[in-house]
């Protein structure tokens, strides 16, 4: 990917910037100048939450050359609490464990590299949403033996 093309998309790729329509409220990710729902040009820039839910998914076994070393990988449509939808990989889990309805967190990752010498392209991937702190964390740790060597 030529660096100008990558650079232009940094606000949405790095910070999950999206547009919320001032008229109908539809959230478009990445940002759009014209609302695809009502054609309003009265859009407000918002930042999406770093979490969401898997709507549908697939596991890609035959990837394009750039992703050869990563296959098989799960690819999903994720909806954030704001109602924005994005296509992202689901990482850090067995691709076979991904399912519709699964809650995910969005983490900043290296998405692709332009060959051996080109630029590195970053963005977000989904990972299973793990509970954090307190009882939830204690419960998780008690399951450690199940997870280990899974």
């Amino acid at each position: 990917m030529p660096s100008p093309r990558y650079w232009r998309e940094i606000p949405s790729r790095y910070r999950l910037e999206a547009t919320r329509c001032g008229d109908c409220g539809r959230v478009s990710y990445p940002p759009r100048r014209i609302c695809p729902e009502c054609r309003s040009t009265d859009g407000e820039t918002i930042e999406l939450s770093h979490e969401g839910r898997v709507l549908t998914y697939t596991v890609v076994h035959v990837p394009p050359d750039d992703f050869l070393m990563e296959a098989p990988y799960a690819l999903a449509v994720v909806e954030t609490p704001e109602g924005a939808r994005m296509m992202v990989q689901v990482a850090d889990c067995d691709p076979a464990s991904v399912e519709a309805g699964m809650m995910v967190a969005l983490e900043f990752r290296l998405i692709r590299r332009e060959g051996k010498g080109g630029i590195l392209c970053y963005g977000y991937k989904a990972v299973p949403a793990y509970p954090m702190g307190g009882e939830a964390e204690a419960e998780l740790r008690s399951k450690e033996s199940e997870v280990a060597h899974a």
Binding site: V60, P63, I111, G123
Partner: peptide
């Protein structure tokens, strides 16, 4: 920008 960037293929 939104699909292929993340490793989408046509079969995918």
């Amino acid at each position: 920008e939104t699909e292929v960037y993340h490793g989408a293929t046509f079969p995918g």
